[in-house]
Amino acid sequence: MLLILSSFWPGYQFFWFVFFVIMFLIGFWCILMFFGVIIPMWLTSGLREYFGKTKPFDPEDIRRKTLPEQGAEVIYSNPKGRGPFNDHGHH
């Protein structure tokens, strides 16, 4: 049994090498993004907002506006009746 398993060793070696290279690249990318993007972003916009240099974040600014708030005229904003359904709940 050991002889059969050991015959696959070069394949295992190759797949561990591929796994190591992929994990190395992913780890290197994470380190690069953390020091190249996350920390500079925190040091600029985060601290600028913390010290009051910008206006504080207001979730209302990015809220999806309703049609009347966008300035559109809504004709059927107050419908009357029960719609296309009868009393049994189907067409």
Score class of each variant (00 low, 15 high):
89 G>R: 01
55 K>R: 10
51 F>P: 03
8 F>W: 09
86 N>K: 12
87 D>P: 06
83 G>F: 00
14 F>V: 12
53 K>W: 07
9 W>D: 05
56 P>A: 13
55 K>Q: 11
70 Q>N: 02
54 T>V: 05
78 N>R: 10
8 F>T: 05
19 F>M: 07
82 R>E: 13
45 S>H: 03
86 N>W: 07
45 S>W: 06
63 R>D: 05
53 K>R: 11
20 F>L: 15
24 F>A: 14
68 P>G: 02
9 W>R: 12
35 F>V: 11
24 F>M: 10
35 F>D: 06
61 D>G: 05
70 Q>G: 08
8 F>P: 02
13 Q>H: 10
32 L>P: 03
24 F>Y: 15
81 G>L: 03
85 F>L: 14
52 G>D: 03
76 Y>C: 11
71 G>H: 03
22 I>P: 10
4 I>C: 11
16 W>C: 13
42 W>A: 10
44 T>A: 06
2 L>R: 08
32 L>Q: 13
28 F>Q: 13
57 F>I: 01
24 F>C: 09
20 F>V: 03
25 L>E: 09
17 F>V: 04
44 T>Y: 00
33 M>F: 15
8 F>A: 12
82 R>G: 12
44 T>W: 06
67 L>E: 00
20 F>Q: 15
48 R>C: 12
26 I>K: 09
80 K>P: 07
5 L>F: 08
69 E>Y: 01
34 F>W: 05
31 I>N: 09
23 M>V: 09
63 R>S: 03
49 E>Q: 12
51 F>R: 07
16 W>P: 00
45 S>V: 08
85 F>V: 12
87 D>F: 14
23 M>A: 15
26 I>C: 11
71 G>L: 00
16 W>F: 14
39 I>V: 10
88 H>I: 12
5 L>A: 14
36 G>D: 08
26 I>W: 05
11 G>D: 06
46 G>S: 02
61 D>I: 11
15 F>R: 11
56 P>W: 02
46 G>W: 10
83 G>C: 00
86 N>F: 04
12 Y>M: 08
2 L>Y: 01
40 P>D: 06
76 Y>P: 00
21 V>N: 15
77 S>L: 07
23 M>T: 13
89 G>E: 01
12 Y>Q: 12
12 Y>N: 12
81 G>I: 02
45 S>R: 12
56 P>R: 06
16 W>Y: 09
13 Q>A: 09
28 F>Y: 15
77 S>T: 13
73 E>T: 14
22 I>Q: 15
68 P>R: 01
78 N>G: 05
84 P>I: 00
10 P>K: 02
21 V>Q: 04
41 M>C: 05
75 I>H: 06
52 G>R: 08
80 K>C: 01
68 P>Y: 02
82 R>S: 03
35 F>L: 14
53 K>Q: 13
80 K>A: 13
31 I>M: 10
66 T>S: 08
75 I>E: 04
71 G>K: 00
47 L>G: 06
72 A>G: 08
43 L>R: 07
60 E>W: 00
2 L>I: 06
54 T>N: 15
77 S>F: 04
10 P>T: 05
63 R>N: 02
62 I>G: 03
89 G>M: 01
26 I>Q: 03
79 P>K: 01
37 V>R: 03
20 F>N: 10
59 P>H: 14
91 H>E: 03
27 G>L: 00
88 H>R: 14
60 E>L: 12
35 F>E: 01
83 G>A: 04
24 F>K: 06
70 Q>K: 10
14 F>A: 07
84 P>H: 01
44 T>S: 04
